[in-house]
Design a protein around this nucleic acid. Sequence first.
DNA 1: AAATATATTAACCATATGGTTAAACCAACC
DNA 2: GGTTGGTTTAACCATATGGTTAATATATTT
Lengths: 204, 204
Amino acid sequence: MGKKKDAKERILNAGLKEFSSWGFSGTRMDKIASRAEINKAMLFYYFSSKENLYQEVLRHAVRKILPKIRNIILLERNPKGFLEKLPEIYINFFSENQDFIKMIAFDLIQRTDMIKTTFKETIGTEFHQGPQMVLKKIKKWYDKGAISESDPLHFMINIISLCLFAFIARPIIETIFNQKIGDQQFIQKRIKSVINLLKQGMLK
Amino acid sequence: MGKKKDAKERILNAGLKEFSSWGFSGTRMDKIASRAEINKAMLFYYFSSKENLYQEVLRHAVRKILPKIRNIILLERNPKGFLEKLPEIYINFFSENQDFIKMIAFDLIQRTDMIKTTFKETIGTEFHQGPQMVLKKIKKWYDKGAISESDPLHFMINIISLCLFAFIARPIIETIFNQKIGDQQFIQKRIKSVINLLKQGMLK
DNA sequence: AAATATATTAACCATATGGTTAAACCAACC
DNA sequence: GGTTGGTTTAACCATATGGTTAATATATTT
């Protein structure tokens, strides 16, 4: 096999790179083909359309993150552990998968319906009632007096915002504040800062 | 005048709407034209190219937010006041200018060089050494023992993340957690939650 | 009112782009 | 060695799209 079955995989990788750099409409099929070092017709042979290739790439990527967070988010029974472990996992994953993040970010803005569908599909099959269960768990923590944020939704938004945003807004942050982001030092500091803020700010 | 000078303004508005919905390459000049209710040739008559129109729209939008935050960010001498006032201004502005946010968000991902230039231009002329001064001010607060976050950059990233992210990630948050965002109730709660978290988490 | 400058339009153009096709290639099996 | 089924390619195609042009309408100036 070797070369043969590689093609599909190479296309998916090239697709991720291109789509995450240029968005759906900015991406050219020719460029994906040349990046994957195959003839353009192969794209359509394996994936039938740009739209479809895009969805496959997205699915492929979404499936990568879910298993990583599922265990923490569902199994952790203690708010302190939750606020210590989740940011580290999120931030490390995001900093290691910036293409993925960019692609998601594009969808957040532009192709909202599609990403809703993709997430529903993927969450539906692999994640079940996850999100609702998490909200319930957080509510219980509040009722027991373990945390100070009364609204579970904002509790979660706070965490995700602090972990993700820096990696989306990276270029502008670098420009405005004239500092480099993305090296290991920044990431470690980011993890620390987020965990400190969350624990001190939401734990009782 | 009336109808006449309107055209340019109408084009800029239509441009903002279209560019923020579809990104640069996803936006069609014809659609901008029809939204602005003018002939397509007018776009090129006034703005000479898509690229140029895009930049004008972006500049137009960036200039709107800077004055709003400048005073707070430069004049506020007290960390408590800073953390109370900034989130409210940010979140209200973002929730009222979602097109603007979306357009910026596109640039953050896709056209990083351009947004760097635009910001440098606009900040350069209208904002001066603002960002550096803010970082210095925050450093002083830390040295005086008024705040617990030692890194001024992360201090600022924390604030902006918490204020902005929800409005970018809105569709996916709504999907995952099955809740509606964007109505007045959510915004008020968001402001409260952010201010609480920031004060409790970063003030000493 | 004539002349001049500005605004507006319909019809075009060149090229880029997603997608197709028909033929060739190649491995495995008989 | 030939047949079969998947894989790969070069050459095409139809259409969409950014951009142009030349003529016309509308103000503005003299």
